[in-house]
Design a binder for these strands. Structure first.
Lengths: 350, 350
DNA sequence: TGAGCTAATCTAAACGTTTCGATATTGTCA
DNA sequence: TGACAATATCGAAACGTTTAGATTAGCTCA
């Protein structure tokens, strides 16, 4: 007898198979597998044996369909290549896995259009919750979220009109501290490489810069503010513009980690040296910041706490849905003073 | 009339609802939504209208159950915090999304036990394929994979006994080139901070080191080889050991990016300076390597190509299952010479 | 005019679970 | 001994799709 087909469609064993070989009903198998209802030791043994012998594994898809829950969280960030998001992702992933949740990762590349697409993809797949670092202040996003009515927590950035839990930094205060430090070193012409003002972080950080100058009585000049859109390349161009000015700034602050690389390249390419010729500081810390020169003075974000809080919030929100009003958790940055900033040269040598 | 329940269980609209409001059967709706079978313009209009009016979205879970495919790929890596994996993840993510696949991310933290757990999680969720950078050479992993019979591609590392597609680097040659470069600068005592020999990368890179020394006629000394297990902290300790030796090495090579941070910290903490007192080179490049001092000489991996090939292989394997024998793609590293390595000091001043 | 086609639509059975309500099997007590 | 719980088990109906096969309507052509 020839085999029916050489390409046997190997179907994974199901509960039905287990039930058959153990001589019980599928309801009993289900009860045993999930421990929802007591099963006699007799049957328990037979089922256990059957499961082992045919190598049964519960099908999570079928379960999801029936239960209406996928035990999966969608994580939407701008760029997995950015160490800040990487660190946060790492801890979120860790915490959620420990609670039995899987994480679906999506990167928006700071583009609201692809963000909408990605979120739609996650919604289709019926994720139980969404953790989003929103790119831009997008209507489509708001509509989708309010429509889908899904537990959501915003991280890093908030978004007007989205009434969700959020964990963010006190960006204004953090930058203000950093700029105050520069001012305390005698800097008056401080260049600022800003992120996009479509994000709450871009706005908050710039506000911190302005507040610091203002309270020190230093006039705010648009000549000293350039936009790097949180990208290295744009920041490079922005920094070049500031550096070739006749009266160039004595210090530069970059509103995130990606941009400070561009800033340093610009400094190198204009033949300047940091910190000798110009001081530099930036938002976001690096693990190598205190080994490679110049040791950057940065604003470190509490990435561990951000990730933990985000994971906690989404789990709570899933457990209790709309019982409580949205929470907003505001954390503080920490100024890490190293040696990329020098006191401003005193022409009088006093 | 009081409402039945104030907590209306808002159920998402289904195909049945669409069918009802459009006055057609669900089969027709399905045909329209998927474009599998021609539908008259008349009904097409009615269905389109109905979908818009009740805000219908196809339920991907139900679809997956029926179709046996989730359009999801599991990505299993050691550590999302490592820039190498981050870069590769980013491009894999990108390519797969473009093909309509979602990516589920799991981190093993280099621990075979959690690796098994994570893969089991992914298998439960019926991912259509797996891209793995295996941690260790694990039986449980092999058993799971051969049992599950799922399209798999290995990246970065291979694993004896797993007969899957793979995209790896020619680690031996890459390290050999780097060590040859050090030798060409006159170095004879070259310290090596190795990764774990449970991984093919750990083995291949160490082999490169040894091969280079051997072909230069330099004796291989165990005193110059220490294990950093691909972690910063372990590498720090390993480097300290090498640096406090009476006859300390004149150059150090680190087998990955995480470890070289530890190495640099060790150099700093023993009061030495790179490259003046000691030369340093390492596997894996950094985006900032040419702006911060010392500008590290590194072996850059073609991360873009690795990610693209991995994504391509998994898609092909999903499309054609077991038709073709497993492919192994071997890419080459590139030595990026900067200035963390100096010619060895010549005591005779010749 | 009606047999034979084609094309569009529908009916109903899966996919692999969970779970409600029903049934069978005990043991307890009046 | 019969009524009544208390338990353990089972049967079958969902969950929201896809799709094979049946049905219907509209043609063509002998």
């Amino acid at each position: 007898m020839a085999p029916i087909s050489s390409k046997r469609k190997k179907t994974a064993p199901t509960m039905l198979d287990v039930a058959a070989t153990a001589g019980v009903s599928v309801a009993t198998v289900s009860a045993f597998v999930n421990g929802t209802v007591p099963v006699s030791t007799e049957l328990r043994g037979r089922i256990e044996q059957a499961i082992r012998s045919i190598g049964y594994k519960r099908n999570a898809i079928a379960r999801s369909l029936k239960m209406g829950t996928t035990k999966t969280i969608g994580l939407v960030i701008a760029d997995i290549t950015n160490p800040f998001f990487t660190d946060v992702t790492s801890v979120i992933q860790d915490v959620l896995h420990r609670s039995g949740y899987a994480v679906m990762l999506c990167c928006t590349d700071e583009d609201p259009a692809v963000q909408d697409e990605q979120i739609s993809l996650l919604l289709d797949r019926m994720v139980d919750g969404l953790i989003i670092a929103p790119a831009g202040d997008d209507h489509a996003l708001k509509r989708m979220l309010s429509r889908a009515d899904i537990p959501t927590v915003l991280i890093d950035r908030i978004c007007g009109g989205i009434n969700a839990d959020a964990v963010v930094l006190d960006n204004q205060r953090a930058v203000q501290d950093a700029i105050n430090y520069l001012i305390s070193l005698g800097h008056r012409r401080i260049g600022y490489i800003s992120g996009s003002l479509d994000t709450s972080t871009g706005i908050g950080r710039l506000a911190g810069y302005k507040a610091a100058l203002e309270s020190a009585g230093i006039p705010i000049s648009d000549d000293l503010i350039r936009f790097g859109n949180f990208r290295e390349r744009d920041a490079y161009n922005a920094a070049i513009q500031l550096l070739v000015q006749a009266d160039r700034p004595s210090a530069l602050f970059s509103a995130n980690n990606l941009m400070v690389i561009g800033v340093m390249k610009a400094i190198r390419d204009t033949g300047l040296r940091c910190p000798d010729d110009i001081s530099v500081s930036s938002f976001d810390d690096f693990p190598w910041a205190d080994v490679f020169q110049p040791n950057l003075t940065t604003v470190a974000q509490p990435v561990q706490a951000i990730g933990e809080q985000a994971a906690r919030l989404i789990l709570e929100r899933i457990a209790h849905r709309g019982d409580q009003p949205p929470q907003r958790i505001v954390l503080s940055g920490r100024l890490m003073i190293r040696d990329s900033c020098r006191p401003v040269a005193d022409p009088l040598g006093s």
